[in-house]
Computed example of a mutant assay.
Amino acid sequence: MEVRTPLIAEMNRAINKQQFDRDNPVIAVFKGLHEYVTGFESSLDDDHEVGARLVTFGQSIQIHVQNIGYKAPFLITFTGVDSTGSQLQLVQHVSQLSFLLVAVPKLQEKPFRVGFIWDK
């Protein structure tokens, strides 16, 4: 019978999570999005925030991005609002991802900065 201490059990969980992160394509895509969005966001002035223009079926929607998250193994989620203030959530498979970053005028006094929801 194998006896495991809490420390060994925690180490095993950490090793399994590291292996999962390496083997899961959504983690790499999410980390790349994080780098691109934070880089883009750092170039914005105080009158703009990160927006995205989504083009599907001949229609274009512009959103003010509030959060980006993921659901393993293949889904990326984007939440935000459109120019009318309507709440939006886009759920997209990593193989279909196309995300055009645009600077959009802020909707409130203080510009919103994107939150990243890790390890959903």
Rank of each mutant, 00 (worst) to 15 (best):
M1N: 12
R4T: 03
T5F: 09
T5A: 08
L7P: 02
L7H: 13
I8C: 11
I8H: 15
E10Y: 15
I15A: 15
I15Y: 04
K17I: 05
D21F: 11
D23N: 10
V26E: 05
V29D: 00
F30Q: 03
F30I: 00
K31E: 07
G32A: 11
L33F: 10
H34R: 08
E35A: 13
V37G: 06
G39H: 08
G39L: 08
G39Y: 09
G39E: 07
D45G: 14
D47V: 05
V50N: 03
G51L: 00
A52S: 13
V55L: 09
T56I: 02
T56N: 14
S60G: 06
S60Q: 06
H64P: 01
V65A: 09
V65T: 00
N67G: 05
L75F: 12
G80K: 02
V81M: 09
T84V: 09
G85A: 11
Q87R: 13
H93D: 15
H93A: 04
A103L: 11
A103T: 00
L107V: 07
L107H: 06
E109T: 09
K110D: 01
F112K: 07
V114T: 02
F116H: 03
F116G: 01
I117M: 15
D119S: 12
D119E: 14
K120C: 13
K120D: 14
